[in-house]
Amino acid sequence: MKVSKNELTAALKKSFEGLGFSYGDYLDAAAMVTWSEMTGLDGLQTLERALPFIDAGNSQSPALGYRYADSNNPHPVLDAKGASSLLCGSRIVDLACSLARKNHSVMLRVDNCRNRLFALERLSNAGQRGLVAAMGWFKEGCFSWATIGAGQQYPALKQFVCAPIETPLHQSLWLFCSTAEKDCWELMSAALPELANANKSEQREPQTLQQAYADSLEQGIAMPVPLWEKFDLLTARVLVESTESSRAGAGE
């Protein structure tokens, strides 16, 4: 079956609301998943894998704080406390944008963050709002690296094959934001020397994402029926039983 962008976004909003996300969170999360799917980044598949964890009592945004790794390191480090980036991605990018506006550029590391792919939509937003931005994360022997220029609509994506990363960082996300053009990759490589020998395995240009988005808009978005049915079940949690008395509340 195929669904439209608006239909998917609406279904996701209600599903996330059904999961217990708060007002702003479910709007953001729906936008992140829809964008990831429409740009060809398999947002629905990622969500399907994430749902059992989120539904197991992990649907509230954690309060976040940051620290500096040491006195010589100017880059803040946050602990996402195991939250999905659906719940913390917006605020992390907000913080990066804010710090970049004040200090011209910033590099953030976010530890213990799940479903990091979704934060890419937020990063693109930062690009659209005039910042140079980049993010990177390890997953399954690969390092993913996304960059977006100031005023651009879509990011470029690269993947590098590399040796498995040490445990504390395998769930980390690195974010860069700058008010001016900057070689973020150089900063990233400096922060993670093991990337120096990584081999590029895949590259997607912004135009590829843009075309995928346009195709989804034109032809609709392929939707696995079982997942759609799962959305229905989650949505049912926000619906209220219909009674004779409640029908009066619709003007009957």
């Binding site: 702003g24 969170d25 709007l27 309060a63 940051y66 913390c88 804010s98």
Partner: peptide
Amino acid sequence: DIAHFLLRQPEFRGII
């Protein structure tokens, strides 16, 4: 600023 406020009080991001 707002970013720092929202780190601690995320529930207000939508309305802000």
